[in-house]
């Protein structure tokens, strides 16, 4: 068997909110430099899975977890491991664009400043780099000091991607990043995702099957908290193994 490198592995992960079991014994991995799509009808636990990977669920007092999540071989829930360091290494883009109510520039500089970058030239360079990577630079380079909420929805979401990239994380989590955008902006961001996988491990949550097929290399189908199928996107598209997967991709459930 060929050795494949992956930043993130999940072993026998189950999670609860209170007494409600959300994820059921999930085992999978996310390959480097590729896009892994997590599909499933809404409410099946896609966001919960994503938020378990950067420990954002820790904020919910009733959250409980069993099983192991490895980031570069290290258990991220091991007592004493730094959640802040982890979140710096695993970027996240949310369902609705959520730029901070401050200037475009300040949005990008927020993360690097938190983590100790002080030099103005370096910060300027980070701003330019991140915006270029998010394919937004040409559109906003003259408006860096304008408030970010004044940008269009699609631009805001790309700004959020740029903001996530500003601290240079190897992994990018994206929770239905285009579901609130118009088709044109959504198309731009899909292109961007494909572009970004050259340098990042991308985990893309979506309930849109076509989108998953368009951009992902591997796909996981989650149903009622269970990982029903996990395979290369091509195989799932052509010949799903499980009938629930087939039902979902043909639009009969979800």
């Amino acid at each position: 068997m060929v050795e494949i490198s992956h930043n993130i592995e999940i072993h026998n992960l189950s999670t609860w909110f209170g007494s409600k079991k959300i994820l059921r014994d999930i085992t999978c991995y996310f390959r480097d430099n590729s896009v892994t799509a997590i599909m499933g009808p809404s409410g099946c636990g896609k966001s919960t899975l994503l938020r378990t990977l950067n420990r954002l669920n820790d904020l919910v007092p009733s959250f409980r977890r069993e099983g192991v999540v490895l980031f570069r071989g290290q258990d991220i829930y091991k007592p004493g491991s730094s959640v802040y360091e982890l979140r710096k290494r695993i970027g996240m883009v949310f369902q609705k664009p959520n730029p901070f109510p401050m200037s475009v520039r300040d949005n990008i500089m927020y993360g690097p400043k938190l983590h100790g970058v002080k030099d103005d030239n370096e910060l300027d360079k980070i701003v330019e780099d991140s915006l270029k990577r998010a394919a937004l630079w040409d559109e906003v380079k003259d408006e860096l000091d304008q408030p970010a909420p004044n940008l269009s929805g699609g631009q805001q979401q790309r700004l959020c991607i740029a903001r996530a990239l500003s601290v240079d994380p190897p992994v990018l989590l994206m929770d239905e990043p285009v579901s609130s955008l118009d088709p044109l902006s959504a198309g731009k961001i899909e292109e961007l995702i494909v572009e970004l996988k050259k340098d990042y491990t991308i985990i893309l949550v979506t309930h849109n099957v076509q989108q998953a097929f368009r951009v992902s290399d591997e796909a996981a189908f989650l149903y009622l908290g269970e990982l029903v199928e996990f395979n290369s996107t091509k195989k799932i598209a052509v010949a799903p193994q499980d009938e629930r997967t087939e039902a979902f991709i043909t639009g009969r459930i979800g």
């Binding site: 954002l56 996240m92 949310f94 983590h115």
Partner: peptide, 11 residues
Amino acid sequence: TLREASLALGA
């Protein structure tokens, strides 16, 4: 979501 965006950056 603004709080989450900040926390997700490691704040």
